[in-house]
Design a protein around this nucleic acid. Sequence first.
DNA 1: ATTTACTTTCAGTTTGTTTTGAAAGTTCAA
DNA 2: TTGAACTTTCAAAACAAACTGAAAGTAAAT
Lengths: 168, 168
Amino acid sequence: MNLTEAKQQFIASWGAFGSHWGINRTMAQIHALLMVSAEPITQDDIMEQLNISRGNVNMNIRDLITWGLVDRILLSGERKEYFSAEKDIWKVATQIIKERKKRELDPMMKLLATLEDIDGDKKDKEVKQFIDTISGIRKFSKKADQMLDVMIKADESWFLTGMMKIFK
Amino acid sequence: MNLTEAKQQFIASWGAFGSHWGINRTMAQIHALLMVSAEPITQDDIMEQLNISRGNVNMNIRDLITWGLVDRILLSGERKEYFSAEKDIWKVATQIIKERKKRELDPMMKLLATLEDIDGDKKDKEVKQFIDTISGIRKFSKKADQMLDVMIKADESWFLTGMMKIFK
DNA sequence: ATTTACTTTCAGTTTGTTTTGAAAGTTCAA
DNA sequence: TTGAACTTTCAAAACAAACTGAAAGTAAAT
């Protein structure tokens, strides 16, 4: 397989992969394209390589920037804006974890805390089941939250080597 | 807040949460309803409580069963089928991890392996960047894969107490 | 001040997903 | 074997998300 084919395959798969995780296909594809590009590229490059409109590129690039996965690059002497993605997959992963934790896990935990103390007789089977379920989810989320915090702060070599000693 | 309100809130939030993770809102809502129900319930109960059609319930229940999150229960002497969800959140989580790993991570890793050895001069900047990116993702995925395997096999108390000693 | 090179926005359209409901299928009991 | 009770399917409808492209906006260069 040559570079062009391989790039295309990677971009397509990364897009499909993303769409299983609540990320829109095009955004994931743009991200993939940027990750395998050695040099920063322009909106027009992206439009051409992925066959999508200017507006679409603009919108998704903006999103990728707010996710902290892509940077706007201004080359001196150039009018045009260039874009470049973080290529270190560990940084990409921790950045995504950090953002999703903030956007989703944190609010969920806040809600669970309020739902745990409802009015009602704890002898009632339905009330008991509700409280048990919620409190189980809450305890689990708390641990997951702590674990993610450690991961975010840790560095890559710790993940690749240190942690694996623990996980035998 | 009373039980009914709290249930509704939980169901709504669990639905919204799911839809950020590639799970359709209704499926997540049915799952939530089943998790907080002390006793098995029927299709009709679900239709009524969530205001959705019979076909919709049927489809999504079937999906939840293939995910291993919900069981069909036959009460002796009853014609009707009842449904019940696994309530232990640890089991729910490991079950989801196991399935998604099989459906998504495993195929992705297989693809990455094939993409890593492309034709082309490794001195070429673009070729080099491509190989570096792919191999970085592959190494990372491999570690993540190992970690998930350990988690799937581990039991809940290990997660809640043991692992946390490691993560300080 | 005007032109030129570029970026952003957004109403309308396309595409994709979810839901409905009625019809077909199944199973059991009489 | 018929009918009642229930489940499953699936074509069409409703809904939601993503995309386009042209128009409006911005800012550097002349």
